[in-house]
Simulated scan of single mutants.
Amino acid sequence: MISSYYGSILLLGRTNVGKSTLLNFLVKKKISITSHKKNTTNNNIIGVYNNDIYQIEFIDTPGNIFSKNKIFNLLKNNKYDFILFILDKNKWNYIEENFTKIFSKINIPIILIINKVDQIKNKNILLPYINFLKKKINIFYLFIISAKYKLYTNNIYDIICSNLPKKKHLYPKNYITDQTDQVIIKEIIRENIMKFLHKEIPYLIKIKVIFSKILLNEINIIFLVKKINHKKIIIGKNSNNIKLIKNRSEQNIEKFFKKKLKLNIWIKIQ
């Protein structure tokens, strides 16, 4: 009889540190949107890695969870098998200090991940930074990676799987995420709005799926905005902006659901 192993792992770190990019890599599916803009992930997102023996539940958290009270409430039950604590190169301030103060009060192994190594030109800065981190955190294991370019990431599975508890799998074998089809569609569109529009405009748009029938290969979306000039910005000169958002979103949605789809978008003043 084949033994099964299951674990629940929490991803923590400041906003825009690369948690969503790493989650997508670990789950082998793009379920969390990525952007250079802050606070891209607004809610916890569960992604599940499955094979015949191992099942790993990864929980991606919003980057605005960095007050000591929020961190403590999230971790006080010690229900996670590991924490993936993700750092951006050599950044460190009160946000990371808050995390480490709570880490010292809990009994959850910390896997430390220094991300965006591709952006570090002088690698000599890493050794003193690592020595500094070792004084701050009781590190179970350390990885230095680029989640974006999938550099030095494969061994993360080996360390996690070799230390998972023997347990029945919690989710069905084909389960990937707790996000509904409608949420995934909205998030894909939101990612492309952030990509092709600038400044605060993406945060002022409400996306509403008014009719979504994947089986009929058609998805209808309304963008709700409050001002006419916001509508004009979204449409863009010669409708360039809305065309880019529609076409790229349609491609991304088709790739996720693995079928040909038609995306219709309307913009309305709320």
Rank of each mutant, 00 (worst) to 15 (best):
I185P: 02
I221Q: 02
I102P: 07
V225W: 03
K68H: 02
S67H: 04
T41P: 07
K259W: 01
T153D: 07
P172D: 02
S249K: 03
K166D: 02
K260S: 09
N69L: 11
Y94F: 15
N174P: 02
I83T: 10
I267G: 12
T34R: 04
T21H: 06
S212C: 15
K168R: 11
H230T: 09
I235V: 14
Q179K: 14
N155P: 04
S35T: 11
F223T: 05
Y80A: 05
D181S: 10
S67T: 11
K243P: 02
K173Q: 10
W266F: 14
P128R: 05
D118E: 12
Y129T: 03
S249E: 03
Y141V: 04
K231G: 03
I110C: 12
K136C: 04
K208L: 15
I46L: 15
Y94V: 10
L133Y: 04
D88L: 11
K173T: 08
I207T: 10
L216A: 14
K246M: 05
Y49N: 08
K232V: 08
L197Q: 13
Y6G: 00
H198Y: 15
I234N: 06
K258V: 01
Y94Q: 11
D181A: 04
H198R: 15
K255W: 07
I267L: 11
D88P: 08
N16K: 04
I45P: 04
N24F: 05
I269C: 00
K105R: 14
F223G: 04
D88K: 15
N44M: 08
L74Q: 09
K76Q: 06
F256R: 11
N50I: 12
S146Y: 10
I120G: 00
I189W: 08
K37A: 13
I219Y: 02
N240D: 09
M1A: 12
K186Y: 02
P109N: 06
F211V: 00
F25I: 01
N217A: 09
E254N: 08
I56W: 15
I245K: 00
V48Q: 09
I245A: 01
K37H: 14
Y149E: 11
L74V: 01
V117A: 07
I188T: 13
I111A: 08
I185Y: 01
I210V: 09
I9A: 11
H198K: 15
V183L: 15
H198Q: 15
K260P: 03
